[in-house]
Design a protein around this nucleic acid. Structure first.
Lengths: 133, 133
DNA sequence: GTCGTGCTTGACGTTTACGTCAACGTAAGG
DNA sequence: CCTTACGTTGACGTAAACGTCAAGCACGAC
């Protein structure tokens, strides 16, 4: 998909760490855990756009409280979706449906939570105007 | 708010742990961390409906990846919303607005994630029907 | 040449959120 | 009286997700 006009962008550890708001330690740790697999230029790591994209997915997963293992499972799915065989596609699809169900449950949970928070805030405001007079 | 007809329900550690799907260790740990403060009957802990409610809130927070410290901050707010003074109410309200903003951001994030997951699932289904013929 | 900057690989430390004993009390049942 | 079930505190263990050195290489600037 990369045209010959646009050179594929790459990052060093420090650059990618800065851009993502993580430390280089984190990037190396994720690599050791098999979440990302940067190329090498000699000894130095070279991160591709694919690594970058995977990192964004991982970060989002982490914000939702997923473990690194769960994150890996998900990012790996994005890769496996095109090339697999029938059996693999079916198990993958089943897992995706599970995840979607879970996400919808979280949405409902979030809605409730947000509702409660705004309720409490409303109570606060009521008390404040009451006191304000 | 408890009428004389309905006796306030209470729980022992084991009962509450079973009902919430946690271990007794978790309940004692949360108490040590100041998240819940059950009464005592002699040496034994007696958990009230208030403790029960706080636990539900804590569990929900945990599902969203909050730390116990963040959970405590939130459950404490629910208590502070009624009785505080003007200054406290204002800082509380400001904090609540921050939280609400964060929750809305999470909602958007979740929507995106769910969209992507269903997209990948759609790709899988497409590949499957393609292979199925 | 050496200084600073950035990269490398270990190796050990740390925080969070509990799990897992151990040793003991106590109330109910047979 | 003895066992079983449930409770108590205290101490130590542990998995996850990094943080924090240490020691060294490589390279451009001065």
């Amino acid at each position: 998909m990369t045209s010959k006009a646009e050179v594929a962008r790459t990052w060093t550890v420090g650059e990618l760490a800065d851009e993502l708001g993580v430390t280089t330690r984190t990037l190396r740790f994720y690599e050791a855990e098999g979440l990302i697999t940067p190329q090498r230029a000699g000894a130095n790591r070279i991160y591709s756009q694919r690594d970058h994209a995977r990192m964004r997915l991982i970060q989002r997963g982490r914000r939702f409280g997923m473990t690194l293992g769960e994150c890996r499972e998900i990012v790996d799915m994005y890769d496996g979706a095109e090339s697999s065989e029938q059996r693999q596609l079916q198990t993958l699809l089943a897992r995706l449906d599970e995840i979607a169900t879970d996400l919808r449950a979280r949405q409902a949970d979030l809605r409730r939570t947000l509702g409660e928070v705004t309720d409490v805030a409303a109570q606060c405001r009521a008390r404040l105007t009451e006191l304000g007079d």
